[in-house]
Amino acid sequence: MTPSTPDRPLSLTYSPCPNDTFVFHAWAHGLIPGAPPVDVDHADIDITNGRAERGEGDILKVSHAVLPWVLEEYALLPCGGALGRGCGPLVLTRDAGGTGQAAGAPAVRAAADLTGRTVAVPGERSTAYLLFRLWAAEHVPGGVGNVTVLPFHEIMPAVRDGRVDAGLVIHEARFTYRDYGLRRLADLGEYWEGTTGHPIPLGAIIARRSLGADRLRQITDAIRASVHRAWDDPAASHAYVRAHAQEMDPAVAGQHIALYVNEFTADLGPEGLAAVRELLTRAADQGLVPPVPQLS
């Protein structure tokens, strides 16, 4: 793709999830004075990860787990992402009394029961899956059997209907999984925080390095301004958030925003950067991702 110039809008891609539409509402709608104009596209995180790996797009919301493959072409921006505490991915199974995927297979009641079983995940380059692999290496002797990638909104129905033995879920599923008759087998946020003491790195904002240092500073300023405007006037983005989360209960959307839009969204800071570095260093040490010499 030809690098963007001031003569055309920058491409900006993020998910339709409430935290992203809340954060980027002001910038996407031209409400930030002096901010670079943008053409916005909404896509599931697995799609944006793939676009980043192929070098498609100027500014993208991606998983922190994909950074080792894209940092040569893209810079990690210090704002707009998703980190936090108490917001990690969950490993879900059917409620007690259910059966396994295969006829006659025992129910999954403990982490060790996942040995040789089928797990649905929201993307092979997702941070959720990277955390799952780190956790499973310690808690699932012999490893899981099959991993299947599904859009995150399809994972809980797949677990409920017995098409998979367990599912790795993100986002608002933290608040709704009981509605599907599912139970929490593990909270990977609790695992991560208890093991490292760091907040959980989930989503990152990256921008094409070829835009140049001045343009990257403009983009960073625009994102921060959009975050602060969202906080100052949260009602302004309601219609936009709802338009892209039509099937989500408004109360759940509010919980989603409150959980994932926090101080790290406005500024990654030393604490957030240390968390990302810890994740990628641990993963590289286990051969799960290529080494990352620096995060910038």
Results as ranks from 00 to 15, higher is better:
residue 56 E to R: 11
residue 89 P to F: 12
residue 84 G to H: 01
residue 44 D to A: 12
residue 60 L to C: 05
residue 37 P to E: 12
residue 77 L to D: 07
residue 57 G to Y: 01
residue 51 R to Q: 15
residue 96 A to S: 13
residue 45 I to F: 10
residue 44 D to V: 12
residue 65 A to P: 11
residue 41 D to E: 15
residue 34 G to Y: 01
residue 55 G to Y: 11
residue 90 L to N: 10
residue 31 L to A: 10
residue 87 C to M: 15
residue 65 A to N: 07
residue 60 L to K: 00
residue 81 G to T: 13
residue 47 I to C: 04
residue 67 L to Q: 04
residue 51 R to P: 07
residue 58 D to A: 03
residue 95 D to I: 07
residue 33 P to K: 11
residue 49 N to Q: 05
residue 41 D to H: 14
residue 27 W to T: 14
residue 72 E to M: 03
residue 95 D to G: 05
residue 62 V to R: 03
residue 102 A to T: 12
residue 54 R to D: 11
residue 43 A to G: 12
residue 43 A to I: 11
residue 38 V to S: 00
residue 40 V to S: 03
residue 79 C to Q: 09
residue 100 G to R: 01
residue 104 G to K: 02
residue 44 D to F: 11
residue 103 A to G: 00
residue 98 G to R: 13
residue 97 G to H: 07
residue 44 D to R: 01
residue 73 E to F: 10
residue 74 Y to N: 07
residue 97 G to V: 05
residue 89 P to A: 14
residue 77 L to P: 06
residue 75 A to M: 09
residue 48 T to N: 11
residue 42 H to S: 14
residue 69 W to G: 01
residue 68 P to R: 08
residue 103 A to P: 03
residue 42 H to T: 15
residue 100 G to I: 02
residue 65 A to S: 09
residue 31 L to K: 10
residue 87 C to Q: 12
residue 47 I to S: 11
residue 57 G to I: 03
residue 76 L to P: 03
residue 86 G to M: 10
residue 50 G to Y: 11
residue 34 G to C: 04
residue 29 H to Q: 13
residue 95 D to E: 14
residue 35 A to L: 00
residue 77 L to M: 10
residue 38 V to F: 06
residue 59 I to F: 01
residue 76 L to N: 01
residue 26 A to C: 04
residue 89 P to S: 15
residue 34 G to F: 09
residue 43 A to K: 09
residue 63 S to G: 12
residue 90 L to H: 13
residue 72 E to G: 15
residue 87 C to L: 13
residue 72 E to F: 04
residue 36 P to C: 04
residue 50 G to N: 15
residue 33 P to C: 09
residue 29 H to I: 07
residue 86 G to K: 03
residue 26 A to T: 06
residue 66 V to K: 02
residue 42 H to A: 06
residue 36 P to Q: 04
